[in-house]
Design a protein around this nucleic acid. Structure first.
Lengths: 231, 231
DNA sequence: TTTAATGGTGTAAGTCTGACACACTATATT
DNA sequence: AATATAGTGTGTCAGACTTACACCATTAAA
């Protein structure tokens, strides 16, 4: 005896909380909606999952179609399933987040008509967002904070070569508190996955700082154990 | 101009990974399915979400209907959205987990016909489970491990009065490694949320151990800050 | 009374954390 | 050439925490 699946019971969608950093400031990727409901509002990039794609793939596709960005390593962090999240019916959403270095090369440009534009916006002074996106953003931001405490993920946000001061500012922006310069440097260097370069910062009108880069091989070696548990 | 929601695109369900401990052994709650597909297989308690209930409510309802247990504090930990998880079509599942003390009083008894029975099974030597439930269980177990490292959640699993050795055994079962007795006791007691009782263990044929209970008020006070970040 | 089984306890070495202040250097300005 | 400016780069100490490690105490049963 075959038993059939019940008919579909929900609309299923993805929202993306993408953090970037630029000019020492932590930013988040937003789009301007071009569709009702909330037409013309700002929102997190998000859309509906297709029936024949996994949610991880859907997240990549949707982000790409709405913003032009691809190949980020997004991770889901929470699923929002209240009944009245969407004014027109039941929608359940898995939220993903990722970190990325912002650089001019990667152009932000929606592929589909559903977004008018995509752009980076500072995480402070965030405007009102469509749907429950403010809550989704907050949850994602908290997740990022907690994670930063036990995994050095900040490198994803920085250019390839960076100074220790830049790294520290980023930590301070995410954790929202001042850190002690000497202790911060001591600790970061003690991990052993920062590679000191023979280069210095350029174009500054004061003593130039040494540049470092992130040694992913050493990092992986060191954080192997923690990562193994991370599924 | 009104734009309608697309028609529903998925079946949405919940699975529950419920940990309990009994006789010093860590166990998980399973059901015997009474429905195709996977009729007669063992599985995690799980079922389909209704259109008019939030996923958190759905999780409580479903667990109750399949096992008779209620009022646990479940938390979602991951959403499974591969395309071919279910042999009959697209199903997306949010997995929840919770900890509970097993005691004889709470009878396990399915309310609905969808489960033949519900029972506790040791987490070691787990049999093959229906669908991708083995993977869901593993992910949940890893989550539990990581969480135990920064929150003393083990109390949820123990009877009201317990000995330090019982507490330690539970930690060892979850973390899957031996701990040093003296260091473990020192550390647990140093937190200050264990209340020493004037009672001792009974019915053992060796020196009886002191009983302790968990002081939830102090615990909350101490872990307030960490919890605030935990959304 | 002896045995078997588990309960209960302290110390020392090493590691990590957090607090704290000043000289150095590159450029821009006069 | 001298000086101002702005951020770079560095060491130490105290306290807290972590880890390793071994033996006597108590109870019930034989």
């Amino acid at each position: 005896m075959e038993v059939k699946l019940p008919t579909f019971n929900s609309v299923f969608s993805i929202d993306c909380v993408i953090f970037g950093s630029e000019a020492g400031e932590l930013k988040i990727l937003l789009i301007e909606r071009n569709e009702e409901p909330y037409k013309d509002w700002l929102a997190l990039p998000g859309y509906i999952v297709e029936q024949d794609e996994s949610i991880d793939n859907a997240a990549e596709r949707i982000l790409y179609e709405l913003t032009g960005l691809r190949d980020l390593h997004m991770q889901q962090f929470h699923t929002f399933g209240e009944v009245n999240r969407h004014p027109q019916g039941r929608v359940i959403t898995v939220a993903y987040y990722a970190l990325i270095r912002i650089n001019g090369q990667k152009e932000l440009k929606p592929i589909t008509q559903y977004a008018k534009s995509a752009f980076w916006h500072p995480v402070n002074e965030l405007p009102k967002l469509a749907f429950d996106h403010t809550e989704i953003f907050q949850t994602g931001f908290n997740k990022l904070r907690r994670r930063l405490n036990y995994q050095p993920i900040a490198f994803e946000l920085l250019p390839e070569k960076f100074t220790l001061t830049q790294l520290q500012s980023l930590y301070e922006a995410v954790l929202n508190k001042k850190l002690d310069k000497r202790n911060f440097r001591k600790k970061m260097l003690s991990y052993g996955f920062l590679k000191e370069l023979d280069e210095k910062q350029k174009g500054v009108s004061y003593r130039a700082a040494k540049l470092y880069k992130f040694d992913r091989r050493k990092y992986t070696k060191i954080f192997q154990n923690e990562l193994n548990l991370d599924s």
